[in-house]
């Protein structure tokens, strides 16, 4: 066992990379749930985004186009969910589960020709001098743009929910859709937009895995990140900064336990592998003991009958 092989600077830098797909998907889902919709299809939208982004960037040679395609792919799949739950008034839990199963199958079909292909690499930030600074450079100034976008998105969602009119209407819709309707807000429209946003975020998170973190395509490569994102939103009490914290905690422990495994620590591998899940949930459960609760209309079907 050789713990000195673990470089703390590289550890922090790589935990940020490991956390980003989770962060993106969870922030999207947070917005969806704040509008009162429970979309359990995050995993499906991520994996569709992963293959859509992968395929487009391989075909065009542009990682940026790939990322955009991933967002469109995730949003398109979420359209299906929006149609089922907002217009056909189907049960949200069942529709979400169906979306995940459908997405996993669809992505396997789409990805058949892409196994073993290497995608074009995404440029990382490289500011002369600053990016070469010891410690600060590798941690803050030498990542890919999507990672920064994830942090920016967290801040933007926090700001929008707390300070803007759109955020207020979104929260109101999720809190009490009957009251929002009585005041003349378009409940269905707000929710469809939120669902599309959530789909795009999940798609981007998926593409981050296939284009940047792993860079390759394998079937089912999101490996449950979508489900972790769902749990993260709940345990983070629907608060954006706590989602960020939870994602980084999860990513950090994941990277750490991989390093520990490599260093040959005398703990069975199974315990190390489960540690990110256990520790993230324990921390967030302790933090979520305040009185904030789920949006009042979460998962309830709205129909303007009155």
């Amino acid at each position: 066992m050789d713990l000195s092989a673990i470089n703390p600077v590289l550890l922090i830098a790589s935990l940020m990379v490991a956390a980003t797909p989770l962060l993106l998907a969870a922030i999207g889902e947070l917005v969806v749930e704040k509008s009162g919709v429970l979309n359990l299809g995050v995993e499906g939208m991520m994996i569709v985004g992963a293959i859509a982004g992968f395929a487009v960037s391989v075909e065009t040679g542009s990682p940026l186009l790939g990322l955009i395609a991933a967002m469109i792919g995730g949003a398109l799949l979420s359209c299906l969910f929006a149609f089922l739950t907002q217009f056909a008034l189907a049960n949200q839990v069942a529709s979400g589960l169906a979306l995940t199963l459908f997405g996993l199958g669809l992505s396997a079909l789409m990805g058949q020709g892409y196994v073993g292909v290497k995608p074009p690499a995404m440029a990382t930030l490289d500011i002369p001098v600053i990016s070469d600074l010891p410690v600060i450079g590798p941690i803050f100034f030498s990542h890919d743009p999507v990672l920064y976008f994830g942090v920016f998105l967290t801040a933007a969602v926090w700001y929008a929910l707390k300070f803007t009119r759109i955020g207020l209407v979104l929260r109101a819709t999720g809190e009490n859709h009957d009251a929002a309707h009585a005041l003349g807000y378009h409940v269905i429209r707000v929710r469809v937009i939120a669902i599309l946003f959530g789909g795009a975020c999940a798609g981007l998170g998926g593409a981050y895995i296939s284009l940047i973190r792993v860079p390759q395509w394998t079937e089912g490569m999101t490996a449950g990140i979508g489900w972790i994102a769902l749990a993260l939103v709940v345990f983070a009490s629907w608060k954006p900064w706590r989602v960020l914290l939870g994602a980084y905690l999860f990513g950090g422990i994941n990277v750490l336990q991989l390093n520990l495994q490599a260093a040959g620590v005398a703990i069975p591998v199974e315990y190390l592998a489960m540690s990110p899940y256990v520790i993230t949930i324990v921390v967030l459960v302790i933090m979520s003991r305040d009185k904030t609760s789920a949006p009042g209309s979460l998962g309830r079907i709205f129909h303007a009958s009155s």
Binding site: R165, L168, R171, A172, E175, N176, A179, A180, A182
Partner: peptide, 15 residues
């Protein structure tokens, strides 16, 4: 049916 329990008074008024 026209107040939002989880929001504060000012937010309810603004809506």
């Amino acid at each position: 049916f026209s107040l939002f329990d989880a929001l504060n008074v000012a937010e309810n008024v603004a809506l």
